[in-house]
Amino acid sequence: MDLFEILFWLLTIMAISCALGVVLSRNPVNSVLFLIATFFSISGHYILMNAQFLAIVNIIVYAGAIMVLFLFVIMLMNLNADVEPQKSRLVQFAGIISGGILFLVILAALRDARTHGTLEREATDIGLIKNLGKTLFQNYVLPFEISSVLFLSAMIGAIVIGKKESVHPVVSERNPHQN
């Protein structure tokens, strides 16, 4: 077992146990922290696979921005373990069982995957910014441009949903089955 493999197993164990921590911990704040830890270990895997750029982006975007946003929201709502309602044991059990069965089924399905691909140990430079930038702006310029539409709509969404509805006479949509 060389350093590479030791690192792999270390990161794997960390990722899986932290992921379980996200799911199982009662306090939402702990869940967020576990998730951030998971992201760090996944970033570690990225570095193992010579995807340095993504490793950094993962930490900056996910752990740095997205999770902080989550944390803010949770703080804002002042959610803690006492507040959070628990699902009944039965439902939790069903969740574990069905998720586990799905895992086993997929595992069994892919058990004899005939991809005997292996990951070379040698460092490659495809994960460098220079290479990625070239690919992005040569081959993937359309998605790059188009994702602006996505951001525009997300922005509009934040406005539409976040802004308080101005008070003005509107005919409410009445539906007798509403209540």
């Binding site: 069903a94 069905s98 799905l102 997929i106 399905a109």
Partner: peptide
């Protein structure tokens, strides 16, 4: 919502089982 996702997962499992086994 939880139940809906649960049904989806069950359906997914069954479809996987059918297609592979």
């Amino acid at each position: 919502v939880g139940f809906y996702i649960f049904m989806m997962v069950i359906g997914m499992t069954v479809l996987f089982a059918i297609s592979f086994f």
